[in-house]
C-alpha cells in the first residue's frame, strides 16, 4: 500500500500541512480529511508543504481542485510550497500554476498570507 501521512503545524492563523510520501487515488482521502478538519476549525488559510511529497497523481490534485474555491470564498486560500521538481512538473502539466499560488518555500507562502490581512 502507498505510504502517506499529513501532519499539522500552525503559524498564526495559518495552518501548515506537511505532506509525506505518495499521494494517489488510495491516499487522497487522507489529505481531504486534513483539509476538512481545517475547515471545521474555521481555518481557511492553509499552506501545504510538499518537501517530503514524493509522488502525486490526478486524484491528489483533485483534492486541491475540490477545496480551493470554497476556501477563497471564505477569505482564505491553499498555498502550495516547497514541491520537489518531479511533483511540481505534474502540477505544471495540468496548468495549476495559473490558478494556484505555488511558492518555492514555505516562508514565501507565509509572507504572501501576511500581505493579505485577515477579516
Amino acid at each position: 500500500m502507498s505510504e502517506f501521512s499529513v501532519s499539522y503545524r500552525a503559524s498564526g492563523d495559518v495552518r501548515i500541512l506537511d505532506l509525506n510520501g505518495e499521494l494517489d487515488a488510495h491516499t487522497a482521502s487522507e489529505l481531504e480529511s486534513a483539509i476538512e478538519k481545517c475547515k471545521e476549525e474555521d481555518t481557511v488559510r492553509i499552506i501545504v508543504n510538499g518537501k517530503h511529497l514524493v509522488y502525486i497523481s490526478s486524484a491528489g490534485l483533485g483534492v486541491f481542485m475540490a477545496f480551493i474555491e470554497e476556501l477563497r470564498e471564505r477569505g482564505g486560500d491553499i498555498k502550495i510550497a516547497a514541491l520537489r521538481p518531479k511533483v511540481y512538473n505534474v502540477f505544471d502539466l495540468l496548468g495549476f500554476p495559473m490558478l494556484f499560488d505555488i511558492t518555492d518555500t514555505e516562508e514565501e507562502a507565509v509572507t504572501r498570507f501576511s500581505e493579505t490581512t485577515s477579516d
Partner: peptide
C-alpha cells in the same frame, strides 16, 4: 478545463488527459 473544474469544485476528471500528456 481546470478553471471550470475548480468553479464546479470537481475533484476528478484529469486521468485520461494526463495519460495522453504523459
Amino acid at each position: 478545463d481546470l478553471a471550470s473544474f475548480v468553479r464546479q469544485k470537481k475533484s476528478g476528471g484529469f486521468g485520461v488527459h494526463l495519460m495522453r500528456k504523459l
